[in-house]
Design a protein around this nucleic acid. Structure first.
Lengths: 139, 139
DNA sequence: ACATATACAATGTATTTTACATATATACTT
DNA sequence: AAGTATATATGTAAAATACATTGTATATGT
């Protein structure tokens, strides 16, 4: 029997936690943001999952870390959709890497993600402006 | 037995769908964005769920609609957390309304959401700048 | 030679969020 | 009397995420 508001009533959602009374740690995050981030990095140059994770730290929010498990799963998913291609590379030393490359399809998706992110950017901007206006004009 | 990439391999995620080959409808959305939107509107003035839904159209992305079911559920959740208070109002004609009011706790959460949204705003901005740089400098 | 650390890839699963469907009751209009 | 708008609410499947765990190859220190 599941509760509408979570496992226990009054439990905070996963995007925030109370660090002390009246002060919250909130994480406003764009759903699936790592996908356009991957597409952009692969557009800049082919690479493999592990290296991608390192490069992603420049694009994801400060302090966040890349979940390797989900990253690999996502990459295989993108490949199943034909948005990226991969080959095993044994040329370089170390464990064999699966090197990913963006397809034409993937390149188009990157463009569409960017347009959508522009829209989200404006939506957040609208909120922030209205919030600041509220703060200025209250009392 | 569940597939890693979803119910059927190669199926697109819920945030995008292909409208024709090479062209996607992508929805970049902030997780739980409706929560800070509700808090801001209630900070501007107490109101009830149905009216809130109308006011929310100014804050949520263009073309999106408010899911009433989830809105009411979310409001009850916020109340269980002590972020909003509610009273039944039968003063006006029509079905009785549950009028919500922001608490001090809720006001603090609004401030923390805003700070987090500023951070998300910058994260998206970084992505867009880097994307535009890539577009300018490719080939 | 051996232990340990790191690079690299992948799977398993519970929880949370969201989309969508459905239920209920009142008031107003025609 | 029927239809529409107002108003609140629950049920549920699918998707996204966090977190845990597994497996293997290579490099490094002793």
């Amino acid at each position: 029997m599941r509760r509408s508001a979570g496992c226990c009533p009054g439990a905070p959602p996963r995007c925030r936690s109370m660090i002390r009374p009246g002060v919250w740690r909130v994480r406003a995050r764009v759903e699936r943001f790592i996908e356009p981030a991957i597409l952009l990095l692969l557009a800049e140059g082919s690479t493999h999952g592990y290296e991608l994770a390192a490069a992603l730290t420049d694009l994801i929010p400060e302090g966040e870390v890349v979940d390797m498990g989900n990253l690999y799963r996502l990459l295989r998913g993108l490949e199943a959709e034909g948005l990226v291609d991969s080959v095993w590379s044994e040329e370089v030393p170390g464990p064999t890497k699966r090197v990913y490359e963006l397809t034409e399809e993937g390149r188009h998706l990157l463009d569409d993600w960017s347009r959508s992110l522009e829209s989200a950017y404006r939506t957040i901007g609208r909120f922030l402006e209205r919030y600041e206006h509220y703060v200025r004009t209250k009392d």
